[in-house]
Write a protein that binds this DNA or RNA. Structure first.
Length: 268
DNA sequence: ACCCAGGCCCCAG
DNA sequence: CTGGGGCATGGG
């Protein structure tokens, strides 16, 4: 059942999906197939219309954070950047316009970003799809076609280290092996407070400061989270430190600005 | 062959 | 607590 939704320029589907925050989607013809927690959708954007074909449309409105007022957020970030004469932030806000921070499933986000370390985006995506294809007991039908969802905690707990390694996880296989065993103990201790969430997440082997911030941002929409990876580090060095400037993190929505900056530098 | 990819662990000092 | 070596894998 297809639903048509009016959107404005604060949402750009393709930019959002390709901004490096999610890995479980695929382009087919003129639309994207996106995999969520217990849902899959076929979605495309034409101008200011969004066409969603899904088992549960409301899930996807939340997944894409379409209930957030990005006009307001962007106005705040712009005025903050102007106050600080921050030209790179202003440029990033222009170029990143349309990107939204998604609300992704917690477990899958953890596993995905553990995999992301010292890895590149196409290969992360390949591993996520291979894991779903080979290890998942979870599937869903849409338009008479069956789609494999990301494996459940249970699915991954059953695997040996060797089986995990067989999808090209390399040394990260041991992190995943450990993670699925401590996850049940952790699930009730997060989504409470940003600093505490970081602490809990970082107590897992294989989750450091950057990955923990990605999880807070992309699964919990904790907008104070500001993941610093090699690209953001390059930006801080080249656009600020080496020019004698200081980057001042916005007091609100820093994570959204970070995603705009990341996108801007990567799409040069 | 070499370098890099949305880093992290572990061990010196 | 900080800095640096090592880490699996595949693609350019």
């Amino acid at each position: 059942m297809e639903r048509v939704i009016d959107i404005d320029k604060s949402f750009d589907l393709e930019k959002t999906l390709k901004s490096g925050q999610c890995f479980h989607f695929k382009k087919v013809e003129d639309y994207f197939i996106v995999y969520g927690l217990n849902n899959v959708c076929k979605i495309k954007q034409v101008g200011n219309k969004l066409y969603i074909n899904a088992t549960d449309v409301y899930y996807w409105l939340s997944y894409f954070a379409l209930d957030e007022d990005y006009e307001d957020i962007i106005a705040y970030l712009k005025s903050y950047a102007r106050e600080n004469n921050d030209t790179f932030s202003l440029e990033s806000i222009e170029k990143g316009m349309g990107i939204r921070i998604l609300r992704q499933p917690f477990f899958e986000t953890c596993v995905s970003f553990i995999i992301s370390q010292r890895n590149n985006i196409p290969r992360i995506r390949k591993i996520i799809f291979d894991m779903s294809e080979r290890f998942s007991s979870r599937k869903i039908m849409l338009d008479g076609v069956e789609y494999k969802l990301f494996p459940s905690l249970d699915d991954l707990q059953k695997l040996s280290l060797e089986e995990l390694k067989s999808v090209g996880l390399g040394y990260r296989a041991e992190y995943i092996y450990d993670f699925v065993r401590v996850f049940p103990d952790m699930i009730d201790r997060v989504r409470f407070d940003y600093e505490k969430d970081l602490e809990v997440l970082k107590s897992c082997k294989g989750i450091g400061d950057k990955v923990a911030n990605c999880i807070c941002l992309f699964a919990f929409n904790e907008y104070d989270a500001f993941p610093i990876d090699v690209w953001i580090n390059k930006i801080l060095e080249e656009e600020y430190t080496s020019k004698g400037k200081e980057f001042k993190k916005p007091k609100k929505y820093a994570g959204i600005l970070q995603q705009f900056m990341f996108f801007t530098r990567r799409s040069e």
